[in-house]
Amino acid sequence: MIIKINGKYYKIKKIEKNPNGKYTITTENGKKYEFKNVKIFSEEELK
């Protein structure tokens, strides 16, 4: 799965839903981001 952050695309390693309704997304390079609204892309959609 792929996520778009600030115009760049990252591969997703893990998605966790937090009790506060936000999502914590861990990218393949180990960085964590927290979002309220998340749009996930499949690799097929990006081709």
Rank of each mutant, 00 (worst) to 15 (best):
N37V: 11
N18E: 07
I12K: 00
F35E: 03
K36H: 12
T26E: 11
K36D: 15
T24N: 07
T26I: 13
T26G: 00
Y10R: 04
E45W: 03
I5C: 05
E34L: 09
E43P: 05
G30P: 00
K8F: 11
N20C: 06
I15G: 00
F35I: 15
P19T: 13
E44M: 03
E44D: 12
N6Y: 11
F35A: 14
I3D: 00
K36V: 13
I25E: 00
E28M: 14
N37D: 15
F41H: 03
N29M: 08
I12A: 04
I3M: 07
E43F: 02
N6R: 13
K17A: 09
E44W: 01
E45C: 12
K32S: 10
Y23T: 05
E16T: 11
I5W: 05
I5E: 01
L46E: 07
F35K: 05
N20L: 05
E44G: 04
K4H: 11
N6S: 10
I25A: 02
I5P: 00
E28A: 12
G21K: 02
K36L: 13
K47Y: 04
F41E: 09
G7Y: 02
I12T: 02
K22C: 12
I12P: 02
I25Q: 00
I12F: 03
E45S: 06
K32I: 13
M1A: 10
K36T: 15
G30M: 02
M1S: 09
K14F: 09
N29E: 12
I5R: 02
E44C: 05
I15W: 06
E44R: 01
S42M: 10
K36R: 11
K47A: 14
Y33S: 01
N29Y: 09
N6M: 09
I2V: 15
K39T: 15
T27N: 02
E43Y: 04
I40A: 05
T24L: 14
K8H: 13
E16P: 00
I12W: 01
E43S: 05
Y23F: 12
K4C: 12
K17I: 14
I12C: 04
K8I: 12
K47P: 11
T27G: 05
K22W: 15
K47F: 05
N20I: 03
N18S: 10
K11V: 10
I5K: 02
N20A: 07
N20Q: 07
P19Q: 12
N29F: 09
K31I: 10
N20V: 03
V38W: 02
G21Y: 01
K14L: 13
K31P: 03
I2F: 15
L46V: 08
K31W: 11
E43R: 01
I5V: 13
I15Q: 01
I3L: 08
N18Y: 07
T26A: 01
N18D: 09
K13H: 13
N37R: 08
I25Y: 03
G30H: 02
K17N: 05
K31G: 11
F35S: 07
N18Q: 12
K32V: 15
E43D: 07
K11F: 08
K8P: 00
Y9A: 06
E45H: 02
K13M: 12
K47C: 13
K8Y: 10
K17E: 07
K36W: 13
E28P: 06
G21F: 01
I12D: 00
I2P: 01
G7L: 03
Y33F: 13
Y10E: 11
K13A: 14
G30F: 01
E44H: 04
L46N: 09
Y33L: 07
K36C: 14
E28I: 13
F35C: 09
N37E: 14
K4W: 08
T24S: 12
Y9N: 05
G21L: 02
I5Y: 08
K4M: 13
K8C: 10
E43A: 02
K14W: 10
K32G: 02
T26N: 02
N6H: 12
K39L: 15
K39E: 15
K13I: 14
Y10P: 00
P19L: 11
Y10L: 12
N29A: 07
T27Y: 03
Y23S: 02
F41D: 07
K32D: 04
K17L: 14
K32Q: 15
I40H: 06
K11E: 05
T27I: 15
P19S: 14
K47H: 14
I12S: 00
E34M: 10
Y9Q: 04
K39F: 10
I12V: 14
K8T: 11
N29R: 06
E16N: 05
I40M: 07
G21S: 02
K11S: 06
T24M: 09
I15H: 01
N18P: 01
K11Q: 05
K13Y: 14
E16C: 08
M1G: 10
I5M: 09
N29H: 10
M1H: 08
I5H: 05
F41N: 04
E28C: 14
L46W: 10
I25K: 00
F41I: 08
K22S: 11
M1K: 10
M1L: 15
N29S: 14
I3W: 03
N6T: 04
I15R: 00
K14C: 13
E45A: 06
E44S: 06
K32C: 08
E43G: 02
F41P: 11
N6G: 13
T26S: 03
Y9P: 06
Y33H: 07
I2C: 12
I15A: 04
K11T: 08
G30K: 01
G7R: 04
E16G: 03
N6D: 11
P19F: 08
F41R: 03
I15K: 01
E45Y: 04
G30A: 01
E28Q: 14
K47Q: 15
E43K: 03
G21D: 04
K47E: 14
N29K: 08
N37S: 11
T27V: 12
K17M: 13
S42H: 09
N18H: 10
N6L: 09
K47R: 06
P19K: 10
Y23M: 05
L46C: 15
K13V: 12
K39M: 13
T27H: 03
V38H: 06
G30Y: 01
K47W: 03
G30I: 00
K17G: 04
F35H: 03
F35Q: 04
I3Q: 01
F35T: 07
K22I: 12
E16L: 07
K4D: 07
V38I: 14
I40W: 15
T24D: 05
G30V: 00
E34V: 13
K39C: 15
S42A: 10
Y9E: 05
K8M: 10
E43Q: 05
F35G: 03
V38Y: 03
K39Y: 15
L46Y: 08
Y10T: 06
G30S: 02
F41L: 10
N20S: 09
M1N: 09
T27D: 06
I3R: 00
